[in-house]
Design a protein around this nucleic acid. Sequence first.
DNA 1: CACGCCTCCTGTGCGC
DNA 2: TGCGCACAGGAGGCGT
Length: 267
Amino acid sequence: MPELPEVESVRRQLAPELGGRRILDAWWDPIPSVPREFVDLGLVVGRTIGGIGRRGKFMIAPLDEGLELILHLGMSGSFRFGFDDPYVRARLWLDDHRSLAFRDPRRFGRMVVVRRGEYGRIPALAALGPEPLSDDFDPDEFAARLQRTSSPVKPFLLSQRAVAGVGNIYADEALWQARIHPVSRRVGRDRAYALHGAIKEVLAAAIEREGTTFRDFQMVNGEAGRNATFLVAYGRAGHPCPRCEKPLRKIALGGRGTTYCPHCQRR
DNA sequence: CACGCCTCCTGTGCGC
DNA sequence: TGCGCACAGGAGGCGT
Protein backbone atom coordinates (compact mmCIF):
# COMPACT_ATOMS: atom_id res chain seq x y z
CA MET A 1 0.00 0.00 0.00
CA PRO A 2 2.84 2.45 0.44
CA GLU A 3 2.66 4.93 -2.42
CA LEU A 4 4.52 8.21 -2.79
CA PRO A 5 3.01 9.98 0.28
CA GLU A 6 3.62 6.99 2.55
CA VAL A 7 7.19 6.53 1.31
CA GLU A 8 7.87 10.25 1.67
CA SER A 9 6.55 10.15 5.25
CA VAL A 10 8.85 7.24 6.06
CA ARG A 11 11.76 9.00 4.36
CA ARG A 12 11.24 12.14 6.44
CA GLN A 13 11.38 10.15 9.66
CA LEU A 14 14.28 8.00 8.56
CA ALA A 15 16.53 10.69 7.08
CA PRO A 16 17.59 12.45 10.30
CA GLU A 17 18.18 9.11 12.01
CA LEU A 18 20.33 7.56 9.29
CA GLY A 19 22.21 10.53 7.83
CA GLY A 20 25.91 10.30 8.76
CA ARG A 21 25.54 6.91 10.46
CA ARG A 22 27.98 4.12 9.70
CA ILE A 23 26.60 0.61 9.16
CA LEU A 24 28.50 -1.85 11.35
CA ASP A 25 26.77 -5.04 10.30
CA ALA A 26 23.90 -6.37 8.26
CA TRP A 27 21.69 -9.43 8.39
CA TRP A 28 18.99 -10.54 5.99
CA ASP A 29 16.80 -13.56 5.49
CA PRO A 30 19.25 -16.25 4.36
CA ILE A 31 16.62 -18.06 2.32
CA PRO A 32 14.58 -15.32 0.68
CA SER A 33 11.66 -16.84 -1.18
CA VAL A 34 11.85 -13.95 -3.61
CA PRO A 35 15.18 -14.20 -5.46
CA ARG A 36 15.77 -10.48 -5.86
CA GLU A 37 14.54 -9.42 -2.43
CA PHE A 38 18.06 -8.64 -1.17
CA VAL A 39 20.81 -8.10 -3.74
CA ASP A 40 24.38 -7.30 -2.66
CA LEU A 41 23.11 -6.06 0.70
CA GLY A 42 26.36 -7.21 2.33
CA LEU A 43 28.13 -4.33 0.59
CA VAL A 44 26.59 -1.89 3.10
CA VAL A 45 28.83 -3.13 5.93
CA GLY A 46 31.40 -0.49 6.83
CA ARG A 47 29.73 2.14 4.65
CA THR A 48 28.50 5.54 5.86
CA ILE A 49 25.01 6.74 4.90
CA GLY A 50 25.04 10.17 3.25
CA GLY A 51 21.29 10.79 3.56
CA ILE A 52 18.05 9.51 2.11
CA GLY A 53 16.37 10.72 -1.06
CA ARG A 54 13.31 9.44 -2.85
CA ARG A 55 12.20 8.75 -6.43
CA GLY A 56 8.59 7.68 -6.75
CA LYS A 57 8.12 4.85 -4.28
CA PHE A 58 11.86 4.14 -4.03
CA MET A 59 14.04 5.48 -1.24
CA ILE A 60 17.64 6.00 -2.31
CA ALA A 61 20.40 6.27 0.29
CA PRO A 62 23.80 7.33 -1.05
CA LEU A 63 26.69 5.51 0.63
CA ASP A 64 30.40 6.22 0.44
CA GLU A 65 32.60 4.36 -2.08
CA GLY A 66 30.18 5.35 -4.86
CA LEU A 67 27.43 3.01 -3.73
CA GLU A 68 23.70 3.45 -3.20
CA LEU A 69 21.24 1.53 -1.07
CA ILE A 70 17.87 1.26 -2.80
CA LEU A 71 14.89 0.64 -0.50
CA HIS A 72 11.39 -0.31 -1.63
CA LEU A 73 8.59 -1.02 0.82
CA GLY A 74 6.60 -3.13 -1.62
CA MET A 75 3.13 -3.59 -0.27
CA SER A 76 3.70 -4.32 3.40
CA GLY A 77 7.21 -3.11 4.22
CA SER A 78 8.10 -0.88 7.17
CA PHE A 79 11.20 0.24 9.04
CA ARG A 80 11.42 0.27 12.84
CA PHE A 81 14.34 0.75 15.20
CA GLY A 82 15.15 -2.06 17.60
CA PHE A 83 12.08 -3.99 16.55
CA ASP A 84 11.76 -7.75 16.31
CA ASP A 85 9.09 -10.18 15.23
CA PRO A 86 8.91 -13.09 12.76
CA TYR A 87 8.35 -10.73 9.82
CA VAL A 88 11.65 -8.89 10.18
CA ARG A 89 13.45 -9.84 6.96
CA ALA A 90 16.59 -7.73 7.34
CA ARG A 91 18.45 -5.65 9.92
CA LEU A 92 21.18 -3.01 9.84
CA TRP A 93 23.31 -2.32 12.94
CA LEU A 94 24.38 1.31 13.19
CA ASP A 95 27.26 3.06 14.96
CA ASP A 96 24.84 4.68 17.44
CA HIS A 97 24.15 1.27 19.04
CA ARG A 98 20.76 0.96 17.39
CA SER A 99 19.53 -1.48 14.77
CA LEU A 100 17.11 -0.73 11.98
CA ALA A 101 14.70 -3.58 11.27
CA PHE A 102 13.05 -4.07 7.88
CA ARG A 103 9.72 -5.76 8.44
CA ASP A 104 7.93 -7.10 5.38
CA PRO A 105 5.22 -9.76 5.91
CA ARG A 106 4.41 -10.17 2.22
CA ARG A 107 7.97 -10.00 0.91
CA PHE A 108 7.23 -7.56 -1.87
CA GLY A 109 9.85 -5.11 -0.59
CA ARG A 110 13.48 -4.91 -1.63
CA MET A 111 16.85 -3.77 -0.35
CA VAL A 112 19.43 -3.56 -3.11
CA VAL A 113 22.93 -2.09 -3.28
CA VAL A 114 24.03 -0.67 -6.62
CA ARG A 115 26.77 1.56 -7.96
CA ARG A 116 25.49 5.12 -7.86
CA GLY A 117 22.93 5.77 -10.59
CA GLU A 118 23.27 2.32 -12.15
CA TYR A 119 19.74 0.98 -12.08
CA GLY A 120 19.95 -1.78 -14.68
CA ARG A 121 18.86 -4.34 -12.12
CA ILE A 122 15.89 -2.20 -11.10
CA PRO A 123 14.13 -1.49 -14.40
CA ALA A 124 11.18 0.22 -12.72
CA LEU A 125 13.57 2.78 -11.26
CA ALA A 126 15.48 3.18 -14.52
CA ALA A 127 12.28 3.89 -16.48
CA LEU A 128 10.58 5.98 -13.79
CA GLY A 129 8.58 9.01 -14.91
CA PRO A 130 8.97 12.52 -13.46
CA GLU A 131 8.47 13.40 -9.79
CA PRO A 132 4.90 14.69 -9.51
CA LEU A 133 5.71 17.42 -6.98
CA SER A 134 8.69 18.80 -8.88
CA ASP A 135 8.94 21.06 -11.92
CA ASP A 136 9.95 17.99 -13.93
CA PHE A 137 6.27 17.03 -13.98
CA ASP A 138 5.31 19.10 -16.99
CA PRO A 139 1.60 19.32 -17.92
CA ASP A 140 2.24 19.41 -21.67
CA GLU A 141 4.60 16.46 -21.59
CA PHE A 142 2.07 14.58 -19.42
CA ALA A 143 -0.74 15.36 -21.87
CA ALA A 144 1.41 14.22 -24.78
CA ARG A 145 2.18 10.91 -23.07
CA LEU A 146 -1.49 10.31 -22.33
CA GLN A 147 -2.29 10.95 -25.96
CA ARG A 148 0.41 8.54 -27.13
CA THR A 149 -0.71 5.50 -25.12
CA SER A 150 -3.52 3.14 -26.02
CA SER A 151 -3.92 1.92 -22.44
CA PRO A 152 -6.85 2.86 -20.25
CA VAL A 153 -5.78 5.84 -18.17
CA LYS A 154 -5.66 4.15 -14.77
CA PRO A 155 -3.33 1.25 -15.66
CA PHE A 156 -1.18 3.81 -17.46
CA LEU A 157 -0.89 5.87 -14.27
CA LEU A 158 0.06 2.73 -12.34
CA SER A 159 2.84 1.95 -14.85
CA GLN A 160 4.94 4.80 -13.31
CA ARG A 161 6.09 5.88 -16.78
CA ALA A 162 4.14 9.13 -17.11
CA VAL A 163 4.48 10.12 -13.46
CA ALA A 164 6.23 8.49 -10.51
CA GLY A 165 4.70 7.34 -7.24
CA VAL A 166 0.98 7.04 -8.00
CA GLY A 167 -0.46 3.70 -6.84
CA ASN A 168 -3.95 2.27 -6.59
CA ILE A 169 -5.27 4.59 -3.89
CA TYR A 170 -4.13 7.92 -5.31
CA ALA A 171 -4.92 6.91 -8.90
CA ASP A 172 -8.57 6.45 -7.89
CA GLU A 173 -8.54 9.70 -5.92
CA ALA A 174 -6.95 11.78 -8.68
CA LEU A 175 -9.22 10.36 -11.40
CA TRP A 176 -12.26 11.14 -9.26
CA GLN A 177 -11.10 14.68 -8.67
CA ALA A 178 -10.39 15.22 -12.38
CA ARG A 179 -13.73 13.61 -13.32
CA ILE A 180 -12.07 11.09 -15.64
CA HIS A 181 -13.34 7.54 -16.11
CA PRO A 182 -10.57 5.07 -15.13
CA VAL A 183 -11.15 3.04 -18.31
CA SER A 184 -10.90 6.08 -20.57
CA ARG A 185 -8.43 5.64 -23.45
CA ARG A 186 -8.94 9.13 -24.76
CA VAL A 187 -7.74 11.83 -22.40
CA GLY A 188 -7.51 15.10 -24.27
CA ARG A 189 -5.41 18.12 -23.39
CA ASP A 190 -7.82 19.84 -21.01
CA ARG A 191 -8.58 16.68 -19.07
CA ALA A 192 -4.87 15.83 -18.96
CA TYR A 193 -4.22 19.24 -17.38
CA ALA A 194 -6.98 18.57 -14.85
CA LEU A 195 -5.49 15.17 -14.03
CA HIS A 196 -2.01 16.67 -13.74
CA GLY A 197 -3.32 19.18 -11.17
CA ALA A 198 -5.38 16.56 -9.34
CA ILE A 199 -2.37 14.25 -8.95
CA LYS A 200 -0.31 17.06 -7.44
CA GLU A 201 -3.10 18.11 -5.07
CA VAL A 202 -4.01 14.62 -3.93
CA LEU A 203 -0.39 13.64 -3.24
CA ALA A 204 0.52 16.91 -1.52
CA ALA A 205 -2.53 16.70 0.76
CA ALA A 206 -1.71 13.09 1.66
CA ILE A 207 1.89 13.98 2.52
CA GLU A 208 0.58 16.71 4.85
CA ARG A 209 -1.32 13.97 6.70
CA GLU A 210 1.64 11.58 6.63
CA GLY A 211 0.00 9.15 4.26
CA THR A 212 -2.94 6.76 4.25
CA THR A 213 -3.18 3.89 6.71
CA PHE A 214 -5.88 1.58 5.44
CA ARG A 215 -4.80 -1.54 7.20
CA ASP A 216 -1.17 -1.89 8.14
CA PHE A 217 0.95 0.99 6.87
CA GLN A 218 3.00 2.48 9.67
CA MET A 219 5.82 4.93 9.93
CA VAL A 220 9.21 4.56 11.60
CA ASN A 221 7.74 5.75 14.91
CA GLY A 222 4.96 3.16 14.66
CA GLU A 223 2.23 5.71 14.06
CA ALA A 224 -0.41 5.53 11.33
CA GLY A 225 -0.98 8.08 8.59
CA ARG A 226 -4.02 10.35 8.96
CA ASN A 227 -5.21 10.52 5.34
CA ALA A 228 -7.59 7.53 5.32
CA THR A 229 -10.63 9.45 6.53
CA PHE A 230 -10.13 12.01 3.75
CA LEU A 231 -10.36 9.47 0.91
CA VAL A 232 -13.23 10.18 -1.43
CA ALA A 233 -13.17 7.23 -3.84
CA TYR A 234 -10.76 4.46 -2.83
CA GLY A 235 -12.39 1.88 -0.56
CA ARG A 236 -15.73 3.69 -0.63
CA ALA A 237 -17.72 1.64 -3.15
CA GLY A 238 -21.44 1.86 -2.46
CA HIS A 239 -21.08 5.13 -0.57
CA PRO A 240 -22.56 8.25 -2.15
CA CYS A 241 -20.28 10.32 -4.35
CA PRO A 242 -19.52 13.56 -2.45
CA ARG A 243 -20.23 15.54 -5.64
CA CYS A 244 -23.43 14.03 -6.99
CA GLU A 245 -24.69 11.73 -4.19
CA LYS A 246 -24.99 8.74 -6.54
CA PRO A 247 -23.33 5.53 -5.30
CA LEU A 248 -19.69 4.88 -6.18
CA ARG A 249 -19.03 1.71 -8.15
CA LYS A 250 -16.20 -0.79 -7.91
CA ILE A 251 -14.82 -2.65 -10.91
CA ALA A 252 -11.71 -4.72 -11.65
CA LEU A 253 -9.28 -3.02 -14.01
CA GLY A 254 -6.02 -4.68 -14.93
CA GLY A 255 -6.52 -6.96 -11.94
CA ARG A 256 -6.81 -3.99 -9.56
CA GLY A 257 -9.81 -2.93 -7.59
CA THR A 258 -11.00 0.41 -8.97
CA THR A 259 -13.62 2.66 -7.42
CA TYR A 260 -15.16 5.57 -9.32
CA CYS A 261 -18.35 7.54 -9.79
CA PRO A 262 -20.24 6.36 -12.89
CA HIS A 263 -22.14 9.66 -12.97
CA CYS A 264 -19.32 12.21 -12.56
CA GLN A 265 -16.48 10.36 -14.24
CA ARG A 266 -17.09 10.13 -17.96
CA ARG A 267 -15.10 8.52 -20.74
C1' DC B 1 8.18 -1.35 -28.31
C1' DA B 2 3.98 -1.59 -25.85
C1' DC B 3 0.21 -3.64 -24.06
C1' DG B 4 -2.19 -6.95 -21.02
C1' DC B 5 -2.24 -10.86 -18.35
C1' DC B 6 -0.12 -13.75 -14.84
C1' DT B 7 2.92 -14.48 -10.82
C1' DC B 8 5.17 -13.53 -6.69
C1' DC B 9 3.89 -13.43 -1.21
C1' DT B 10 0.97 -13.99 3.10
C1' DG B 11 -2.61 -12.27 6.14
C1' DT B 12 -7.42 -11.05 6.35
C1' DG B 13 -12.15 -11.42 5.85
C1' DC B 14 -15.99 -13.42 3.89
C1' DG B 15 -19.44 -17.13 2.65
C1' DC B 16 -21.01 -21.60 3.33
C1' DT C 1 -16.13 -23.76 14.27
C1' DG C 2 -13.63 -24.66 10.22
C1' DC C 3 -12.59 -24.73 5.63
C1' DG C 4 -11.70 -22.70 1.09
C1' DC C 5 -11.29 -18.91 -1.62
C1' DA C 6 -11.03 -14.08 -3.22
C1' DC C 7 -8.62 -10.15 -2.37
C1' DA C 8 -5.04 -6.80 -1.20
C1' DG C 9 -1.02 -4.77 -4.34
C1' DG C 10 4.05 -2.90 -6.69
C1' DA C 11 6.81 -4.70 -9.77
C1' DG C 12 8.72 -8.16 -12.99
C1' DG C 13 8.27 -11.53 -16.58
C1' DC C 14 6.44 -13.21 -20.63
C1' DG C 15 3.46 -13.89 -24.63
C1' DT C 16 1.20 -11.53 -28.34
